[in-house]
Design a protein around this nucleic acid. Structure first.
Lengths: 172, 172
DNA sequence: CGTCTGAAGGTTATATTATAACATTACAAT
DNA sequence: ATTGTAATGTTATAATATAACCTTCAGACG
């Protein structure tokens, strides 16, 4: 039973048109950078496309390897610099528990990233639930802590991967 | 203004008796391991003591270096194995955003760790707020996601470090 | 058009974090 | 004493990330 009945879809369907995801992410990034006067160079655009290669967060060295295979060899600093730019523009998020990066579906508005990360298929879904945000703010407020940055990463199994005996693996 | 008025204290006071923290953590660990039939060897005990050296999370290589200085030289696998044991027993938590480890103040009951981490003094306070837990469970439940593990790390400034122009540094 | 400037990218080396693989030792049960 | 297993030691290396310095390129401005 892989269905999720009335659950709101946050994980992309297995058969979705992922090229569309990539294209719209790149389009959104172009517009956003143009508006901000930030330079989305060919290099940065390639790295962004590779981060969006999958809904599973991509490691810097995986991106590096793919750049090589694609005929655009680069050294680590090049990739990390591009990632730093994309992070600064809010176009991607870093997943601390995986040392990896994932595309942001809503780069126009600044927000902390709250993620559900499936250990079956590897996909990360960004949720940004108001209730989580509110609970966190209240909890920190109670003790006088000023939050500057949040790392909220929930690992487990997405609806599709439950009951299929999955756990390891890394679906692309 | 470093006061926190009516805020519940979750960060240890600057002048607290930290040796007491260490001693009670070691005592708790001894009891807990004895009850469970787990072997808290001298090596593991030393590593636990070094994790508790400060309320600031300690990196594996910092622990390694201190072991050397203390006349108990070790190689990385030794330290990582001890840390793995301590994690498995719930005696410490890993802070993903720092690649570091911090002692658990309540190792008797299993729980996800929710942390406030001060970028001023470096201290990490474990909170485990019921509201955060509830919000997370509801949010994940809504979309049919099964949570296996949580990484909740809130970075910012503790009450003591606010208004003191702090930000970097790493108070011990 | 030229040239100047600063940002982006290239290059080399190295730091930091973590684990694989295999050998040895210590411990506790019989 | 013997033996089986868990713990530790040892060596090497993998994986992630950055420092430092140099070159190139794109756009601003005269």
């Amino acid at each position: 039973m892989a269905g999720k009945s009335n659950a709101r879809a946050v994980f992309a369907a297995a058969d979705h048109d992922h090229d569309h995801c990539i294209d719209s992410a790149l389009d959104a990034a172009s517009g956003l950078c143009a508006r901000r006067g930030a330079r989305l160079t060919a290099q940065r655009r390639r790295v962004l496309a590779l981060v969006w290669r999958s809904h599973a967060p991509q490691g810097a060295y995986a991106i590096l390897a793919t750049l090589h295979r694609d005929g655009h060899p680069a050294a680590p600093p090049t990739v990390y610099r591009a990632l730093d730019f994309l992070l600064a523009q809010g176009l991607i998020h870093r997943i601390e528990s995986l040392n990896a990066f994932v595309g942001c579906p809503t780069p126009d508005t600044p927000h902390p990233g709250h993620f559900l990360i499936c250990d079956g298929c590897g996909a990360a879904a960004e949720v940004n639930d108001r209730r989580i945000g509110a609970a966190i703010r209240r909890s920190a407020g109670d003790v006088g802590f000023r939050i500057e940055r949040q790392t909220i990463e929930l690992r487990g199994l997405c609806p599709e991967c439950q009951g299929t005996g999955q756990e390891p693996a890394h679906g692309d």
